[in-house]
Design a protein around this nucleic acid. Structure first.
Lengths: 283, 283, 283, 283
DNA sequence: AATGAATGAGCTTTCATTCAT
DNA sequence: TATGAATGAAAGCTCATTCAT
């Protein structure tokens, strides 16, 4: 079975060493920041986790069923009941959610069957239903978890008392890392898919979006007040920034298309810092 | 029901009116363009599709299954079949695709049932299957149609011998119009949803994306050579522009979230022109 | 299209040269017959007909449908109406029945679709329904035709004033030829399949069977009276003979199983002549 | 409905009673056998299958298709589901196969609907599909079962160290019993029907046939060596015997046609023993 | 007569959910 | 708590037949 699925998320947390940050600022032609930002400090070992999905041996089919030693009567599994050992509800929920995420990831919501989630989680279908009311419930819980993690991240980034350029770089670096190393873009696409149909999920996504934009806007406003950013409509500028992130993400969700993220980040930074910052801030 | 969704496409033929364009350039602090382009002249033909759905009375069950349900013997004395007028395959295909698009739009691919497409198109299920091989086939044809229309548009816009700022504004205006007036963002989200599962669609989306970026990049490169745009990695810059479009689109696909598109366009233009153009071009 | 399907039946008629017959009698250790039987004299050229089934070019599918020169809207055939030239109802019926027989032969009744019969016959579906009421009707007509031909044959063989041994050899030779050269066994199996379900067909098959047995029995009885055949229950003996024919036929309908018909005939003749004939007749 | 069809198989275990056998041999004018074999002792266990079909009240349509028809939310307050008692896969498979056999028997493969099999077996359609992959799978399993039973029978009969005449009588008695008392001929016809279309079934039937003939041939050869049977092409003679069985069977599959089996057996025995045995064996 | 688009009941199969164990 | 057999309402699709042309 799959273990450490949690790491899929843990691995999102990125450590920005100040050295790297300094180098970036230099590369983008920005004045060197004095206050380094500390992002997501936790012990996750990162991208090394995402092992290939364990493929379960398919149910054996008879090459010559009518000739096989087992008559048709023995074709299905027998009555052995190997029960999984008891665990706390929270552990079980995590276990199920992790399995479900992996499945939704691979196939999307509709193509994922409860049977698969059960198999992937190592529980029985009945077991799943003991912990969750429905498939939809599982998905919603999953989105909620994702939502909370994203919110934590944004809180951490934006509340840091950094200058705007540092924040931009931080954001950029963060997303580049996340997009490159994880399946985040794909999951986002799947969530969007569901948001069309599930009002609750739609609301969550919208709230997350507005929160994102709102906080970005307030940061930008603060920076405008400080003279770092040119006078613009803050919310629109924040929406623009968010759109860039979403857009890159969406682009990466399709096919094998992987842009040169390094170059994309560099170019975007150049364009955005020039477009957003005041001449003074640009140095 | 259907309210002339066909118009959604007609509205794509966007014509940039020179007056509006001049105003915009002025607003964004750009030098005034010499070659005007027109703005969106909606030429909807308001087609008279969607005949009333024929409702047939239910027919009795067959006692002799082996030659039912099609046996003429069983049906003697029953009511007449009310058949939709014969039409050319082309007309019918368009009609079906329009109906299907409306359904997919409302519910997404999976939640849309063939029955609904049939009802919406005013045909029977069998009629649909006479023209298309499967539900998936319908969707693919739909994407193909959308794809062709998008390609036409981009060819039209980018090949025009405009200066880069005009092109940017043209793009911006186009998308703002399209996003505001149509369901394009939602449909794009639904396509993305399917691209995860249908390789063919995935390829189409990817090709469209690459084509978009490629053409944008070549335009940008030309502009760099002319000294209008600062020296940047052209493909990355194009990817950035495309990402912005996609990102705004994605954002609008969820919930009732509609940003102030006017302001967003204005702000984006300011940021991008400043970020992309050379000081001379900014004049 | 398939032509000369009629030959499938024509080819059934077998010419027994007296020379061959003499040789056989000699081989089976029988006294030499004086009255040669003349069977089915018609100019059919026999087995050389059954050309491989013409395969119609499959409807073209796009390798890259969304990229193809023809948009999805042009995918179905256009309105050209190439009408088949008028023919007499009988000719049409024969044409349709021949096509239907070929189809039923290949796939059986249920797996044969009216579309296939239409294609095979070179008519449209509507055209078929002008001449026949239903699929079932076509099948019944087909069985009727087969029935009549079989009846003609048996009348010809049995009414000839031959001694019993000659008749037996005649029957044997006939069926061996027929089984080896045509698809008769398969068609018989398909008829049996339907007889289970269609009372009318069942009755026809039963009548044919009883007629066969009845005539055989009367021939045997005559031979008993003449002292050629041992005293036996005539109907049972006839049933036995019929069963042998049917059984061989049935065995050949499955798989690629083809017994050595020559040897089978020889052995059967030996066993049956010894088992049936009186010592005098055996000479 | 079902009337202990299971008994049909039990009746296959044939035991040739010495008394009957002696009488037969006497009737056919054969020397008396030394090793008696028993006759058909029907040990039917009369299983208590086929619980009453649970009929559920229809449930309202779903407004929100995307999580219907399985959403628990929609079903609050409805009646309880009445579920059939859990059983082991083996028991259920047998139960389903028995029901399926009865249905196929009545209507043939194509005319039998999964609904009927479900109803007949007392399970729901879903329940059937839990145990079998498809309708075809059910049929194949059924043929497999029949195949195995037939093989067992032939092994039992032929391996017995009886003289050839006893074996012939044994076979004859067996089939007469089986043909008279069961639906075997009809089922065989239905299997033949499918063999035309299903390669796997075709192979099974062919293998069964070849096996039958092969074993019969070896028995005959042994008898030839012992001087009981005249020198003949053993395989052809075996094919002849098999053809007789199949032919009688086929004849009985149609309509209400039932020959006088007693007489048929007697006559056939006379003809065959005379035709096959040496003068010494005939005594 | 002939065409072929259109019909629609019914089919097999799926799968979220339930419940006896 | 957990299991997995059982449920049953659809869903996508088929195809004999009809009928406007």
């Amino acid at each position: 079975m799959i273990d450490h699925q949690c790491c899929l998320y843990e691995s999102m947390e990125v450590q920005f060493a100040s050295a790297a940050m300094l180098a970036q600022r230099f590369a983008y032609g920005l004045p060197i920041a004095r206050r380094p930002i500390g992002l997501c400090a936790d012990g996750c070992r990162g991208a090394a986790h995402h092992a290939p999905v364990p493929r379960h041996a398919p149910v054996a089919r008879w090459a010559q069923p009518w000739n096989s030693p087992h008559s048709s009567l023995q074709r299905r599994g027998t009555h052995r009941k190997v029960m999984t050992k008891h665990r706390s509800p929270d552990e079980r929920a995590t276990q199920i959610l992790d399995a479900a995420r992996a499945c939704f990831m691979r196939k999307g919501y509709f193509a994922t069957k409860m049977d698969e989630i059960a198999r992937e989680s190592g529980l029985s279908k009945g077991g799943i239903y003991f912990h969750f009311d429905s498939k939809r419930d599982i998905f919603r819980s999953l989105v909620e978890r994702e939502y909370n993690r994203d919110m934590e991240f944004i809180d951490g980034v934006l509340d840091a008392e950094n200058d705007i350029a540092t924040i931009l770089i931080g954001l950029g670096e963060h997303f580049v890392q996340q997009f490159a190393a994880t399946d985040k873009p794909r999951f986002t696409a799947i969530i969007a898919e569901m948001a069309i149909r599930d009002e609750e999920i739609d609301e969550m996504v919208q709230e997350l979006q507005e929160s994102y934009i709102g906080r970005l806007a307030s940061v930008l406003e603060r920076a405008m007040d400080e003279g770092q950013v040119r006078r613009l409509h803050a919310t629109s500028a924040a929406t623009l920034l968010k759109a860039i992130i979403d857009g890159i993400q969406a682009g990466m969700a399709v096919g094998g298309s992987t842009p040169d993220l390094e170059k994309l980040l560099e170019t975007s930074m150049e364009v955005l810092t020039r477009g957003l910052l005041t001449d003074e801030a640009l140095g």
